[in-house]
């Protein structure tokens, strides 16, 4: 049975002390410098997180052994104001060509050389479509449960 369950998107906003072009550049071209290595889906340790700078470009990580793992792709490339990425990491914490959730990031001037970055992660219902099927995998240490545990550990460290 196909159902349309539409949860609200996750929306986040952060103000950074940098002009819009700089914020966009750091987000897209220096992702390796700020993306936590623990947020990796590769068996090999993450050495780079890469967004190819064009619509249709790949979004992927590269491991220490040179292997690459897809995360998604670039849907909209409008430097320095807007970026839409397809987030295709599923509940098994693996790349899934059939799962396409959207991540929109907007970079807005916020006075005095500052930038407000608005992030929206939407179409979360597409995770739910597969909820029952992935149940078993989530009980593994590599599943989301394990990731949440890692988050908790970092927060308390």
């Amino acid at each position: 049975m196909t159902k349309t369950i539409v949860p609200a998107p996750v929306r986040k906003s952060v103000q950074v002390k940098a002009p819009v072009p700089r914020a966009f550049e750091v987000f897209t071209q220096r992702m390796s410098h700020w993306w936590k290595p623990s947020h990796s889906i590769n068996a090999s340790p993450m050495v780079a997180a890469i967004i190819e700078p064009c619509a249709g470009g790949r979004w992927f990580e590269r491991g220490a052994d040179g292997s690459e793992c897809q995360w998604g792709r670039v849907l909209v490339w409008e430097p320095p104001a807007r970026l839409v990425l397809a987030w295709q990491i599923n509940a098994q914490w693996q790349f899934d060509t059939e799962l396409v959730t959207e991540l929109e990031i907007r970079f807005l001037p916020d006075g005095d050389g500052m930038t407000r970055v608005d992030l929206e992660h939407r179409h979360l219902e597409r995770f739910g479509d597969k909820a029952a099927a992935v149940r078993e995998s989530l009980d593994s240490p590599e599943g989301w449960g394990g990731l949440l545990a890692a988050f908790a550990g970092q927060a308390e460290a």
Binding site: A131, A132, V134, W144, L148, A149, A152
Partner: peptide, 8 residues
């Protein structure tokens, strides 16, 4: 702690 796993 494992909210997602629990919900699913």
């Amino acid at each position: 702690m494992t909210n997602v796993a629990t919900a699913l």
